[in-house]
Write a protein that binds this DNA or RNA. Structure first.
Lengths: 246, 246
DNA sequence: CGTGCTGTTGAGGACGATCAATGACGGTGG
DNA sequence: CCACCGTCATTGATCGTCCTCAACAGCACG
């Protein structure tokens, strides 16, 4: 399929941290298909699709979103290399209805056909890894839910940024820059673009974000974490809990 | 263990709708333990517990919540008969940190030890059912996330109520009454109690909620759904998708 | 008969939404 | 090379939803 663990390494990293064995990874590699580049702003998964395949992100940044009648967009979660874009839709097709996935930067994605997924899940060490991947997604939703609708705009934005930094570090992306527009942040935090702009300026004034660039670049991670009240434990993978061994 | 499918029927209903087979259910029945009553306001699961067991709710209503330093409480989700209280914590122990489960009414619960869970998951028709149960929970989080921080207090409260009614109907509870205090609604919707009170009064004035009782009783479901913009499809269980059959 | 929880009401103020306009930047085509 | 365009960032002004503080009523409980 023209895909090796060089390009697919974020996915390998992630599955390994979820408890997959070395030989599992090779099986996964075999079923990866259609190594595709999606341009920024294009859809990775259509809202209307009944897909028949699971998409995984290898490079770039995307988001799962819901579009409203009034044209508004709610960003449900951001996705980073190694993340699955629509795993929830594989298990519960109905829940994926009306939810789309959009590339925020240029993205590299691969897909796994549902039939191949079935094969993968028949492996006793791989199935729990996928289960965990989906539960990690659930944990992210739950954590964001607990912070949204609570606290000030400053705390909400700070928490959002902390989450993305932490999730990127989990797949060895240590850059302090996040390739997000302020519009993206607004749609994810449930705030207006204008207010997000002012909030980001406050963070810059506090020397938490870089004043130099117009992009989002975190220069004081510690202070950001404090403002957010961020506790990254919910993202921690328990390396191979013994109960999965047998 | 003194538990039969009479008392455990909501759990049976739920697992069946998630694709479990008849003989699976009997196996589940065998490992259910410690049929316990928890009084309203007591904790079903401690925030600090490292549990070693999964709890399922058979009767009553509970909530998963997060407690803040300032004493505030965020309600992450409500739980109804047939729901698991801490399934996420079984798959990802770390994510359950600092999250508690509290009884909102008097509750009947059973527990399944982690060792027994491992046994259950070795059954190829049962494991997907549990996966789906957890994904359904994720879908609920995601849907609430998309509505929280968007729309008016009226819409948010209406959506919350719609969700609970729909989830209760899925386990054959068709009562229009919800045993929730306004404080519970406030903590779940991310609004102040005072404002929830005014919002509920508005709903009563619109003849959506009963004016007679001080409890929450929905008398005009259709209008409530309209106000909420509620689309219950995300809760729908695909009855036994063929891909799980083999 | 207190005590605590829940529901209710009033008044004032703050945070963030909305509307409107401008500036900066990169790409595209003439 | 420059004019034009779309996207994104920025700023100002006004307005409204919702929060906060405060007080009181009903009810169940010991």
């Amino acid at each position: 399929m023209g895909i090796d663990w060089g390009t697919a390494s974020p996915l390998g990293l992630k599955l390994k941290s979820l408890g997959a064995q070395a030989d599992d990874l090779n099986i996964v590699l075999q079923v990866l298909k259609r190594h595709v580049i999606v341009a920024a702003h294009d859809n990775v998964v259509q809202e209307t699709d009944a897909p028949g395949q699971v998409t995984a992100l290898l490079a770039g940044m995307s988001c799962a979103y819901k579009r409203w009648e009034d044209g508004g967009r709610s960003i449900l979660t951001f996705q980073h290399p190694g993340d699955f874009c629509d795993l929830l839709g594989y298990v519960l097709p109905a829940s994926q209805a009306a939810i789309g996935v959009q590339a925020l930067t240029d993205c590299t994605v691969v897909v796994i056909d549902y039939q191949d997924m079935d094969k993968l899940l028949s492996r006793p060490t791989l199935a729990p890894a996928f289960w965990r991947a989906s539960m990690l997604e659930a944990a992210v939703y739950r954590e964001r839910l607990s912070h949204t609708g609570r606290g000030t705009a400053l705390q909400r934005v700070a928490h959002l940024l902390c989450e993305q930094l932490a999730r990127r570090e989990a797949v060895s992306i240590h850059s302090p820059q996040l390739p997000l527009s302020q519009t993206d942040v607004a749609d994810a935090a449930g705030l207006s673009v204008v207010h997000v702009n002012r909030t980001i300026q406050t963070l810059r004034r506090l020397n938490v974000l870089s004043k130099a660039s117009h992009a989002i670049e975190v220069v004081d991670r510690k202070q950001l974490t404090e403002i957010a009240g961020f506790d990254g434990r919910y993202l921690i993978m328990p390396k191979l809990a013994s109960k999965w061994d047998g």
